[in-house]
């Protein structure tokens, strides 16, 4: 593997603590994400990985800690703010718009870039149509990239699981994000689908220069793709560093394999 040069820090979370009532989900978590890297968050079930992503894009608001994104430090992110600032994500349980076609789902991902108003869209001819065609071109590029040309007009509810995951990635890409949060993009896939997805993740990172935060359970995938890995367990941060270092960490081994006391 060639030596990768990582850019500046784009996102830094510091001392994040999140609890729901008496339930402590995240406890004093701090890490940073550098421009152009693939950053993984791993940990056993219930470690707080998805909650961490939810904190980053503003779905959950932590009680303590700060989030610094692109030089601005905040106590919490707001959902639409995160979207407008170029943070996109996919979900562990697919969250597509089931009644709409693949094309419409990905087109919806571009909603923030559409400037025509409601009246112009009602008349359609003119600005709204010009914009639709312009954005359609971008969406077709994404469809080509993800190799889903054949299903562009299929309602996504009818698609198999692996394809739905791919469409969801397409919807996130449509926003041309700077930071892409992927919540278990390979869960429940067979080897071939996983290989495809890995290729897409690497290509997105390589071709578009998108910074990626990845949650994944498949250790082979994580160790191969990631530049750096954060390990969480029961809301605590166990380790943070390059894959090889994390793999050798005793606390991580204990968390995954268990310890006999």
């Amino acid at each position: 593997m060639h030596e990768r040069k990582l850019g500046e820090v784009v996102l830094r979370v510091e001392g994040i603590s999140l609890s729901f009532g008496a339930m402590r989900v995240l406890n004093n978590i701090s890490f940073d994400v550098r421009q152009g890297e693939i950053r993984s968050i791993i940990g056993p079930n219930g470690a707080g990985k998805s909650s961490m992503l939810n904190v980053i894009n503003g779905v959950y608001h932590p009680q303590q800690g700060t989030i610094t994104y692109r030089g601005v430090t905040r106590d919490q992110m707001k959902v639409h703010h995160a979207a407008a600032q170029g943070i996109a994500r996919t979900f562990q349980n697919i969250a597509l718009f089931k009644g709409m076609s693949t094309l419409d789902n990905i087109m919806t991902g571009r909603n923030l870039k559409i400037k025509s108003n409601m009246l112009q869209q009602a008349i359609y001819w003119g600005k709204a149509q010009k914009e639709e065609i312009e954005h359609r071109k971008k969406v077709e590029e994404i469809i080509d990239f993800l190799e889903i040309q054949a299903i562009r007009k299929t309602p996504v509810g009818k698609l198999p699981y692996g394809m739905q995951k791919r469409v969801e990635l397409g919807r996130a890409l449509a926003a041309e994000p700077e930071l892409l949060l992927l919540d278990e993009p390979m869960a429940g896939m067979n080897v071939e689908e996983k290989e495809d997805m890995c290729r897409f993740v690497l290509d997105i990172n390589d071709e578009f220069g998108t910074t990626i935060v990845l949650i994944e359970h498949d250790m082979g995938v994580v160790m191969d793709l990631s530049d750096r890995v954060v390990v969480l367990d029961y809301g605590l941060q166990l380790a943070d560093g390059p894959p090889d270092e994390v793999r050798a960490n005793q606390a991580v081994i204990d968390a995954y394999l268990g310890v006999s006391n």
């Binding site: 894009n57 779905v59 959902v79 639409h80 995160a82 979207a83 407008a84 996109a88 994500r89 979900f91 969250a95 597509l96 718009f97 089931k98 009644g99 709409m100 419409d104 919806t108 991902g109 909603n111 923030l112 919807r171 996130a172 926003a175």
Partner: peptide
């Protein structure tokens, strides 16, 4: 339609 089908996902991609 996005709001109808999955409002949380709609919000996350920037729909108010």
């Amino acid at each position: 339609m996005a709001v109808r089908d999955m409002d949380i996902a709609a919000e996350i991609i920037g729909i108010k």
